[in-house]
Computed example of a mutant assay.
Amino acid sequence: MLTLITNVELYAPAAMGEVDVLVADKRIAAIAPDLKNKITADGTIMEIIDGRGKLMFPGLVDSLVHISGGGGEGGFHTRTPQMNLTDATLGGVTTVIGVLGTDATTRTLSDLLAKAHALETEGISTYCHTGSYQLPARTVLDNVTDDIILIDKFIGIGEIAIADHRSSQLRSSELMRVASEARVGGMISGKAGIVSIHVGDSDSMLYLLHESIEKSDLPVTQFYPTHINRNGALLEAGMEWAKQGGYIDFTASTNEKFIEEGEVPAAKALADCLDSGVAVSQLTMSSDGNASLPVFDDAGELVGLEVGRVGSLYEAFQEAVLEYGVGIVDAISSVTLSPAQLLKLKHKGRIEVGADADFILATKDRLLLEQVYAKGRCMVRGGKALVKGTFEN
């Protein structure tokens, strides 16, 4: 089937004005005004969608999701559930990068890969990182390099924990070694080979990353630290890291307790960094979906627990535009093109001829989600899921 969206205001994410967009064979086939009048009738079935009064922009690329579940810091009963297909699609997310977290014993890389393949079969695009919080890294094959080169879905390693009581209390030499393994794996396979870094709330903040860069030949772009909006001090440190050329990521999933304790909302963190002169190509937001959101007391004991939501990413995008005045092109880029580029996902995060047909139709005024397409298939219409996961009701 061909799908033609007519007279829609397109952000690719660059502003393209009012155009028609033709989708064919899971890809964007053409972008131009008045395409309807240029298509020869040859009996092909075509769905025509009137895009008047709507915005069209790429489907969201969520660079950090615990698709197979996470948590467990409070015992086995506190392991969080796996992500469902509609957790992503109802929030406009069409591409996810799955990771392990604290628990790499009862949550395994084999299970992570199986879940990624399941979600791909159900309709969205999935990639993964090998490893977890801890080093030495858990891998499927003998080492990180082999995992990235030989296993299609692995594009990097992470999220490796630093500045956190749950980390392996690393030395820079350990981090440099695993980063070099990931880098070589990425170079040989044509993948990002990125090192996703979980940054906790320790006062050491990004010190280990700076030390690793200073003591090695690794570029600052080798590391991709997340949770940079955890508090104001870390946000300032993240801005300095970005001004040295690095990437930083803000976490959309949060709760009132975290905000009371000083966490900066992801949308505000994005606005603050843009205002300070950091390029949007270095800034991303992710959901940390299906992660545990643990609250620890001063002794490191778990006293509260919530679950991250993939849908928080779209909410943060809306908030950035509607509450913090971020320009819509920058806001869209932070959750589409920026993560796709740094993760080397060449067909994602953009609407152009040949790109995957992952896109959103939303209202102009409040950016309300109306339709979501993944690989050319309509997953959400009228804010309701048309396609559900195998075991979703």
Rank of each mutant, 00 (worst) to 15 (best):
I124P: 01
D103Y: 09
A114E: 15
Y133D: 05
T126G: 02
R107A: 01
C128A: 15
H129T: 14
L135D: 11
E120Q: 14
G98N: 09
D103E: 08
V93Q: 05
G91D: 08
V96I: 15
V93H: 00
L119F: 00
T94H: 05
C128T: 12
L109F: 10
K115Q: 14
G98Y: 07
T121S: 12
V96A: 03
D111I: 03
I97C: 10
A116V: 08
D103P: 10
S132Q: 03
L119I: 01
G92Y: 03
S132E: 09
A116H: 11
L119M: 11
G91W: 01
L109E: 10
A114I: 12
H129L: 13
G91I: 06
A118K: 14
E122Y: 03
L119R: 02
A118L: 15
Q134W: 04
L135F: 10
T126L: 00
G92F: 03
A118Y: 11
T106F: 13
G92L: 04
G92H: 05
T108G: 00
E120W: 02
L109W: 11
S125L: 03
A116Y: 06
P136V: 08
G123E: 03
A114P: 00
G91A: 10
V93A: 03
L112E: 05
L119A: 03
R107I: 01
V96L: 12
P136Q: 09
D103T: 09
A104C: 15
E120Y: 05
T105F: 12
S125R: 12
V96K: 02
G98W: 07
Y127R: 12
S132K: 05
C128Q: 00
Y133C: 05
P136F: 08
T94E: 02
D111N: 09
V96Y: 02
E120C: 02
Q134Y: 10
V99P: 02
G123I: 01
T102W: 05
V99T: 15
T95H: 08
L113K: 12
L135K: 11
T130C: 13
T105L: 14
G98M: 09
V93R: 01
T94F: 03
G98C: 04
R107M: 09
L100T: 00
T105E: 14
G131M: 13
K115F: 06
Y133H: 07
G98S: 08
G123H: 00
